[in-house]
Each structure stands twice: as structure tokens, then as C-alpha cells.
Design a protein around this nucleic acid. Sequence first.
DNA 1: TGTACATCAGTGAACGCGCGTTCACTGATGTAC
DNA 2: TGTACATCAGTGAACGCGCGTTCACTGATGTAC
Lengths: 235, 235
Amino acid sequence: MSTPRSRARARTMEEIVRIGRDHLAVHGAAALSLRAVARDLGVVSSAVYRYVRSRDELLTMLVVDGYTELADTVDAALAGASTDNITRLRVLAHAVRDWALAEPARYGLLFGTPVPGYDAPAQETTVPGTRVILALLQIIETACRDGELTEPAGGAGVPPDLGADIARIRQEFGLQIPDWAMARTLTVWTGLFGAVSFDVFDMYGARTFSDRAQVFDVHLDNLVTILGFRAAPAQ
Amino acid sequence: MSTPRSRARARTMEEIVRIGRDHLAVHGAAALSLRAVARDLGVVSSAVYRYVRSRDELLTMLVVDGYTELADTVDAALAGASTDNITRLRVLAHAVRDWALAEPARYGLLFGTPVPGYDAPAQETTVPGTRVILALLQIIETACRDGELTEPAGGAGVPPDLGADIARIRQEFGLQIPDWAMARTLTVWTGLFGAVSFDVFDMYGARTFSDRAQVFDVHLDNLVTILGFRAAPAQ
DNA sequence: TGTACATCAGTGAACGCGCGTTCACTGATGTAC
DNA sequence: TGTACATCAGTGAACGCGCGTTCACTGATGTAC
């Protein structure tokens, strides 16, 4: 039931997450502090403990919040995209990159150096944390079903242990993708985040590339090539 | 000239860097503190300022130290490797991964989320920071010279701005590598660090893969494929 | 509808801890004559 | 070789700041009879 008090509580919870996000953006995850959040909330520091058990719990909320917003962004981009699988792949990748560039600190919390002394509880973060890779795998599944991908000549042998892992993943997500395509998708996945991290974390030299969007598109050309699409990658 | 005093000073400097490294490994870059270094050095906190101008300067020393050790490790691995270019590529990649897994915090300092409030001075970090990419490019150059790489059919168009950047890089390093190979090497570069970061930062789920070394080798198969080596990738 | 009690948000003080950096100082080491 | 002076490593106190978390409390809101 909704009382004024419970509504105020919900609003305050949202405020706390919002303020936490802002602090993340400005000072980074390691410097996230409950006292600072309390200050911005206009409340004495101990009052925050009515809403959040500890600093780590706030971090977990921000992790879940980040994964969820990233995945929502990707889903929204894909919902408005064409059905062409190469195009969908590029749309997904650009959605990830755009979000990461707009929210570098939150991206860093999810895909950067782990916060020292903090372990994200798998129970709460796994589901939101796998939504984007699932979206990618679904694009690949469609492409496989439609016969758009060429199996590599040599078979691109997947070693047995990895084959077992892949079989488990395939079953967990209810997917129908052959081993070789799963293996290639894996490289596309890490390659995508590698490219985004280089961009967001400024790991290319500061003045190395004049237009990083162009660099990213070239990366995508190459990643699409890995997957073995029969058609030439769309530009 | 070497006096007892100057020798003691050099030894203390090394101690400070060594202690800084250890603290990095245990508590992460954001928590690196001069006071803690002083404690481990067995000295009062203000004494450290005889050796290091500020906390940021210590960070810079650790960044340079990290890049240098990583590059030394890679160079050493390559020095003992065969002349086969695919093999050398894999040796380089494994050297990077092994170092990163052995030194996760230092790897994170170099290739992870930027330390909030700290900007590495380009002047001191650029040269040691480019040694590994240079080693990679030299392997590719040899492979190109020996005609081991196949130019893509479509030409894999490099957009004009990026082409100019690539031309500048080629000249800076004194390399002879065509645009298309430079572009592919770029993806291999970010792909390599993406794969290593997923491993070191535990971004695959904790129990997703039973043998991450196998996963890494599959990544390398795929990255070698991107480059367009005529021969099938060696396993 | 009115009252007694329970729930809960927020207060303010405190505990014990950490940090970077400055400054005037002591005492040992190095150097020039 | 001996002495006067300069250099430098390290001390200890201080400044002003931050943090997470606990605890007894006040006063407002919600609930059961």
C-alpha cells in the first residue's frame, strides 16, 4: 500500500542513487562516500543509513543501475533499427560506445578496474549484467539461422573444455548457435569492449587520432569480418 | 660521482617505488598514499618528500615503471622466440597476458579506469608506453614485407582522416605498413587488451569459463584471422 | 471519530581512523680551502 | 691532514581535511482498537 511516508521513502531512494551517480562521475568509484551523498541530500550523515546498509550496498545499487541503463539504451536502439543483422550489430556497438562516452565513470565501474575491497554480489548483478551480451548473441543466432555466416574452412577448432562451457551457455540462454560462431562472438564481445575502453579511458595517445568515431567504425568493420558474414560489411 | 650518500639515496628511491608497487597491488591506485609508503619505509611521513615531490609524482614513477617492466617482459619473450610471425604475435600476446595476470593492479593502473584527479604527464610516459605497440607493429611490418598478409578484397576502406593519422604514425615510427594492415593491427591491439582486461578484471562471470587460457588462445586465433595471414593460424 | 501505541526519518555527538603537505629543527655527511 | 662551512636526510608537531559507522534521542507519521 502507498502511504505518503512510503512514497517519500521511494523518492529519497531514487535521490540517493541519482546523487551517487553524480559523485561517481566526478570523483570515481573509489572515492564514493556516504557522507558526501548525505551532504548533497541535505541530511546528516547517519540518516543515509536508514536507506542504505553500507557503502558497498550503494555501490551494488549503482552497478545494477548502470547495467540496467546500458541495457535499456541498447534495447531501445535495437528496437528502432532495421532487421539487417550487420546493421543491428553496428547499432548495438554504437549504443554501447555512445553510452560509455556519455557516462565514463559508470562505464568504468562496470567494465574497468575493479573497485578495491568491493566484490559485486553475483546474485544481484548477473541478470542485468548479461542483457547486452544476450542481445548480441540473439543477433548472431538470427544471422546463423538465415545462413549469413560462413563456417571457417579449417573448422576453427574449439578446445574441449571451452566447448563444454559454450554448450552450457547455449543451454542457459536457450540459443542455437554452433561452437565456431560462439567462439567468434566471444572475440567480437571482448573486442568491442576493448575498443570502447581505449576510447573512454583515453588509452590511445591524446592526439593520436583526429576522429575516434572513424576509428571505431574501422574496428567494427574488422569485427564483422571475424564473424564471417558472407556479404561485405556495410559502411 | 658516487658517494655513500648518493648511493643510499638511489637505494631509497628504489625502495619507494618497490613499496609503492606493493601498495598498488594490495589497495589499488586510488588508495596509494605517501603516508603508507613512509610507514613501510620505516620513516616519518614528511621524510618521503625528500625523494618525491607529491603523490602524483609517485604515481607517474609507478606508471613509467609499469610500462617499462611490461615492455621488457615482452621484449625478452620475443628475443627467445622463433622468427615465424604468427608465433611471434602469439608470444607477444601471451607475454602481455601473463604479466597482467601476475600484476593485476599495475596492469589496471596502465590499462584500466583512469585514476581520478590524476593525469599522467605525456612527456614522461609516452615513450615507455608505446614500446609494446611498436613491437607489435614491427612483427606486422615483417609479415607484410614477406608477403604473408592478404589484402582484403574490398580494400577495407580507411576513411581519409584516419588515413592521415596512420600516415603520421607510420612516419613517426619509421614503418612500412600499408593502411589496411595498420587498420587491422589497430583492432588486434584493442582486441588483445580487451581480452586481457576481461580476464584480469574478472569481467567474464566468475564460473563462466573453466580454462581461460583456452579462451585466450581462441581469441588469438580470431585476431590472427583478422590480420589476414595466408597460412592458417598455428595452434 | 478519537485515542494509545508502534513505527520510522532524521538529529547530533562521538569513536577511531586515514590523508597530503608545510615548517622549523637536529645531526650526520660531504666539500673547499 | 685539519678545519669551517654547506648540504642534505630525517624528525616531530601541526594544519585542516576527509571517511564509515554506532548510538541514544526527538518528533512526526501511521495503525489498531
